[in-house]
Design a binder for these strands. Structure first.
Lengths: 150, 150
DNA sequence: GTACATGCAAATTGTTTGCAAGTAT
DNA sequence: ATACTTGCAAACAATTTGCATGTAC
């Protein structure tokens, strides 16, 4: 459970990356960093912030997602159902439920993942930049639902 | 290096899954299983097979990709640049090059990956079905190109 | 003969782009 | 003052759908 980032923190983060802080960008970043145990879609964010910014454009959302991801402030994840965004967590595994589409993060000690990256990079003559481990299957809720239904 | 699957093998595979064997489906499956060290896009397949089937429709390609993936005969992978398809390999890591978009597979002993899956599943109360490990970065070629350019 | 696959065209979804006006630094 | 961002509408690409015809079983 990360402490909710204060506006001051967010301004600092953006400044540290040389990114102008617009109101929309701040809200977007705040929403993204507050995502707990998972990731959200661009449209989720668009709808959430539409209350606060009635004139918000999807283009702005996508623009900022790209900028923030490029700066490494958030994480972008490609799934069967489109892209998902969330906070950059420590080395972790994404559990992608094929039932409800939700993504849950499970933190994993670096050791195992680091070894994996190094070995794969060496064998593939590859200079690694980011690791993404996803396991698809059914979450507890959907498993229960599935066995109940048939 | 898997042996090139014979038509007889392919027919058997499809029959084993209760899937009618159309000429297009056979060619598609054959092409997919022959993909070496990586994955291809739906459009790659469409273009490749268009010589053989001048009237081939993209819809057919997508239909079959969905059917074959659902049957577990091929693997579907989601990337920044759209979906990619390829043979179902033993536990492996996908090296996704952000330079050229190519995907290379690196086989990894089960032990490490199995442990990862089990641990993550347990901690996330998740019933795992498929594992996908992707590392993004630059392949050897693109690394060279990058350091030469700038 | 029946169920499923094919091929076409049109529709849908997610995402990107061009540009005029506004805002942060 | 300058560079970057916003918002709108239009453009786009990848993928899906509906339906008539054709093919596997």
């Amino acid at each position: 459970m990360p402490p909710p980032p204060s506006t001051r923190d967010l301004l600092g983060l953006l400044a540290a990356h040389g990114l102008p802080a617009t109101t929309q960008r701040l809200s977007l970043l705040s929403a993204l960093l507050s995502v707990d145990e998972g990731h959200v879609s661009a449209d989720d964010l668009y709808r959430d912030l539409s209350d606060q910014f009635p004139t918000l454009s999807r283009a702005t959302v996508y623009n900022n997602l790209a900028v923030l991801a490029a700066a490494g402030l958030i994480e972008k994840l490609d799934t069967h159902e489109g892209s998902r965004y969330g906070p950059v967590a420590s080395p972790h595994v994404n559990l992608v439920c094929t039932g409800c589409g939700r993504i849950k993060d499970v933190l994993i000690g670096d050791a195992a993942l680091d070894a994996l990256v190094q070995r794969a990079s060496r064998e593939g003559q590859f200079s690694a930049r980011a690791l993404s481990v996803s396991i698809s299957g059914l979450c507890a809720t959907c498993t229960a639902k599935a066995s109940a239904t048939g």
